[in-house]
C-alpha cells in the first residue's frame, strides 16, 4: 500500500529519467538516442542508468550530429519504433531543424495519416545556469511556429514525469522542452505512485487569485509564484497559470482566468519580439477583450542574443520586472 511516507524529495531530472525508464520497461518499442545518453547518462544525467538497464540498443550513444540523430529517429519511427531523442542543449538542436520541420512535423499530414511520427525530441532549454554562449537559448517560438509539432514544457517534478510519459505515448511528435534551471528543483514525489497530471493540451492554475493573471510556463513559473507572493504586500492577489502545453494551446483555461481577473501579463524568458507572448497576448485580446481592464502586457527576455553568464541576471525576467508590469495594468482606472 502506498502511503504519504513513500514520498521522498525527487528532482525534476530524476522524474524525467523515471518517465523514460518506465516507458521503456512497458513498451519495447521505446528507444532513447542522443549524444552521451548511454554510458555517461546524459550531461544532465537525465538518462542515467537506462543503457545499463535496457542495453545500448535501447539507449544509444550516437555520433555527434543532431540532424543524423533526428533523421535516423524518423526512419526508426517509420519501422514502428518510438524514439525519444535527446538534444544536448537548446542551441545544439538547430542542426536538426530541417528534419524536424520538413519531416517530423509534416509526415502524418503529407501521408494522409498513413505514417505517424511518434517521436519525442527532448530539449534542455533556457538560461539561468551560468552557461556560456549557445547553452541558454529559449527556442520555443521556433517550434511553436511549426504546425504538426506539439510543444510541451513542464515546470514541476510531477509534470516532468506525467507529461513525458504522455509525450512518449503520443502518436504525434512532441518537442519536450526541459527547463534546465529546474532540473534540480525538488518535490516530494513517489515514483511508485506518481500523481496523475492534466494531459497535454491543458494549462493549470498553480495559484488562484483575483487581481490579475500571470500566464507563464517552464523556468518562469517559480519566478511568477514568487512574484505573486510578493504582490500580496502591494494588495494584489495574482493568479498564476502554468501553460505547460504551448501547442496545443489551452485557450479555455487561459481565457477563463483572464475573464475572471480582467488583467493579464505573459511572462517568459524567450525574446519578446516574435516570441510566444505576442501570440498569447493576441489570443487573449481577441477572446477576452470586453473583460480586459488593461492591455495584456509581456515580460520577456530582451530582444538580444542570450547574454554571457555574468550578465544574464539582467536579461532574465525576475520578480521585480514582473511586479513592475503588474503595476502598469491601469489600476487607477478602477477607482
Amino acid at each position: 500500500m502506498t502511503t504519504a511516507t513513500d514520498k521522498k524529495p525527487a528532482t525534476m531530472a530524476q522524474a524525467l529519467q523515471r518517465a523514460m525508464r518506465d516507458a521503456m520497461a512497458e513498451d519495447p518499442t521505446v528507444h532513447v538516442l542522443g549524444e552521451d545518453v548511454g554510458t555517461l547518462g546524459g550531461v544532465f544525467r537525465v538518462t542515467d542508468g537506462l543503457a545499463k538497464e535496457f542495453g545500448e540498443d535501447r539507449c544509444t550513444d550516437t555520433p555527434l550530429a543532431e540532424a543524423g540523430i533526428l533523421g535516423t529517429a524518423v526512419g526508426m519511427a517509420m519501422y514502428g519504433l518510438r524514439p525519444v531523442v535527446e538534444m544536448q542543449f537548446d542551441a545544439f538542436a538547430y542542426p536538426a531543424f530541417e528534419q524536424l520541420i520538413s519531416h517530423v512535423a509534416k509526415m502524418r499530414n503529407r501521408t494522409r495519416g498513413a505514417m505517424a511520427m511518434p517521436i519525442v525530441v527532448r530539449v534542455p532549454y533556457g538560461g539561468g545556469i551560468g552557461g556560456v554562449e549557445h547553452h541558454s537559448d529559449s527556442s520555443e517560438a521556433y517550434y511553436m511556429a511549426t504546425p504538426g509539432l506539439k510543444v510541451v514544457t513542464p515546470a514541476t517534478v510531477e509534470d516532468a514525469y506525467g507529461l513525458l510519459r504522455e509525450a512518449i505515448a503520443d502518436d504525434d511528435p512532441v518537442v519536450f522542452l526541459e527547463p534546465k534551471r529546474l532540473y534540480w528543483s525538488k518535490s516530494d514525489w513517489s515514483p511508485e505512485d506518481p500523481a496523475p497530471v492534466e494531459p497535454i493540451g491543458r494549462a493549470v492554475v498553480r495559484r488562484p487569485g483575483s487581481s490579475a493573471t500571470l500566464l507563464t510556463y517552464g523556468p518562469s513559473l517559480p519566478v511568477c509564484l514568487e512574484a505573486a507572493e510578493a504582490a500580496r504586500e502591494e494588495g494584489w492577489d495574482l493568479e498564476v497559470v502554468d501553460l505547460r502545453s504551448l501547442v496545443p494551446f489551452d485557450d479555455e483555461t487561459v481565457c477563463a482566468s483572464v475573464r475572471r481577473t480582467g488583467r493579464a501579463v505573459v511572462v517568459h524568458e524567450s525574446a519578446g519580439f516574435g516570441g510566444p507572448g505576442g501570440e498569447i497576448a493576441a489570443r487573449v485580446t481577441e477572446r477576452c477583450f470586453h473583460h480586459l481592464e488593461a492591455p495584456v502586457l509581456r515580460v520577456a527576455g530582451f530582444d538580444i542574443p542570450y547574454p554571457p553568464p555574468m550578465l544574464e541576471k539582467h536579461h532574465l525576467p525576475g520578480v521585480d520586472r514582473v511586479l513592475d508590469a503588474v503595476a502598469r495594468l491601469q489600476w487607477e482606472a478602477e477607482h
Binding site: 535516423t72 529517429a73 526512419g75 519511427a77 519501422y79 524514439p83 528534419q99
Partner: peptide
C-alpha cells in the same frame, strides 16, 4: 529536401 531521406533509410535499416 535534398539528402534528408538518407538518415531515414539508415534509421529504418537500423530498426
Amino acid at each position: 529536401p535534398l539528402a534528408t531521406q538518407l538518415p531515414h533509410a539508415v534509421g529504418l535499416a537500423h530498426a
